[in-house]
């Protein structure tokens, strides 16, 4: 399982990096960026999914 971030859909709401600061960060404009681009550890999957489920723009997918 990996996190897929669609930067075109991301509008910088910042829900992901508030919920999962170990997995997501932000650039100078507040747009989301991935910290973990590799395969997620089992214990990270739930948090990644939580971030995805809170994104108002549906910009995150965990698959």
């Amino acid at each position: 399982m990996k996190i897929h971030l669609d930067s075109d859909r991301c509008q910088g709401h910042g829900r992901c990096y508030s919920i999962a600061p170990a997995l997501f960060t932000y650039d100078d404009n507040g747009q989301a960026a991935l910290i973990v681009t590799d395969e997620l550890a089992d214990e990270q999957v739930g948090l990644a999914q939580l971030a995805a489920n809170n994104c108002p723009e549906y910009a995150i997918e965990v698959a």
Partner: peptide, 14 residues
């Protein structure tokens, strides 16, 4: 949770 609310708008004018 989840809470994909739109209080700050949606799309390019977030």
């Amino acid at each position: 949770s989840p809470n994909r609310h739109a209080a700050f708008g949606l799309g390019i004018h977030r």
